[in-house]
């Protein structure tokens, strides 16, 4: 029983950390730029395929591939911010249309290039930990540890550095931060790059432990929106709780409930939170 629970815990932590990695970028971009980047799921998917190409055809191995993916997708985030988001920062409707257009462009691009092909990378570490009659995949544990380490680093960066403080200041009051001399354009670009890099990394990790396919973009977009709603829009810390909630629901729901109803149930929870606490569990009422 204890080993079974441990298995569930590892699975929850692994999935939750992936959700948090992607949702954090989405939430940061929204907090700083007030842009709902619906393309974030597609960026995560493309990150996975970029990582696959570094890892398998180019043979760079897991660590270099993950790093290279973060750099490439982060650079893509810089371009995205400059070309697609910055011009529409003060126009919410146009920004939404731009984000939707980006989703279509990125997904169609992926359809045309990778198309029907599913890819998967080997586990970062192979083997498993035998606990009683159960085997706990070491790859899942390592994915969680990588994600947790990066997320911890990211939180420290935001809380302890001047740039991090600038990010928080802009999230609280964009114009006020600008008046205080913070270069909001530069910070926005950095946030977009960081958010995309984290999404790219998540794509790479998922490709190793699960599978890569064009359709994972939409599945992830639904999850990150749910995570951000549970957390409360604008609440960076709440993302952890939101991710953990969704990860738990998505891991335990299919196990204890009929599989096809677990997804609608977790989304029903999101609707319930929206109704009872529109600002989310950790968001501030405006």
């Amino acid at each position: 029983m204890a080993t079974e629970i441990l298995g569930h815990v590892i699975n929850v932590l692994m999935l939750s950390s992936i959700y948090v990695l992607v949702a954090l970028g989405f939430a940061l971009v929204f907090s700083i730029m007030r842009i709902m980047n619906f393309a974030h799921g597609a960026i995560y998917m493309i990150g996975g395929f970029v990582c696959y190409n570094f890892w398998v055809p180019l043979g760079l191995g897991p660590w270099l591939s993950l790093l290279a993916t973060m750099i490439v997708i982060g650079a893509f985030g810089l371009v995205l911010e400059r070309v697609c988001f910055r011009p529409f920062r003060k126009d919410f409707e146009k920004a939404v249309i731009m984000a939707i257009a980006l989703v279509i462009i990125l997904k169609t691009g992926a359809d045309l290039t990778v198309g029907a092909h599913s890819k998967s990378m080997p586990p970062i570490v192979s083997g498993g930990l035998q606990v009683g009659p159960y085997v706990i995949g070491a790859d899942r544990l390592i994915v969680f540890l990588i994600a947790a380490a990066l997320l911890g680093g990211m939180m420290l960066f935001i809380k302890k550095t001047r740039i991090g403080q600038a990010i928080l200041a802009i999230a609280q009051d964009h114009d006020g931060a600008a008046l205080m001399g913070i270069n909001t354009d530069r910070v926005s670009a950095l946030v977009c790059a960081l958010g995309c890099a984290l999404a790219g990394l998540a794509g790479g990790l998922v490709g190793s432990v699960l599978v890569l396919h064009v359709s994972i973009a939409d599945a992830m977009l639904v999850k990150i929106i749910a995570v951000v709603i549970i957390a409360g829009i604008g609440s960076i810390g709440g993302i952890w709780a939101g991710g953990l909630a969704m990860g738990t629901l998505d891991t335990l729901g299919p196990y204890f409930l009929p599989n096809v109803v677990s997804d609608p149930l977790s989304l029903a929870l999101v609707v319930l939170i929206l109704v009872l606490r529109p600002q989310g569990l950790f968001g501030q009422e405006t």
């Binding site: 298995g7 699975n11 692994m14 999935l15 998922v206 699960l210 359709s215 994972i216 939409d218 599945a219 992830m220 639904v222 999850k223 998505d250 891991t251 335990l252 729901g253 299919p254 196990y255 009929p258 599989n259 096809v260 997804d263």
Partner: peptide, 17 residues
């Protein structure tokens, strides 16, 4: 005999069941 949603990311819980 069980069904899984098309958008399932992690099949572990389903398989475990």
């Amino acid at each position: 005999s069980g069904e899984w949603p098309g958008e399932t990311m992690d099949f572990t819980p389903f398989i475990k069941k």
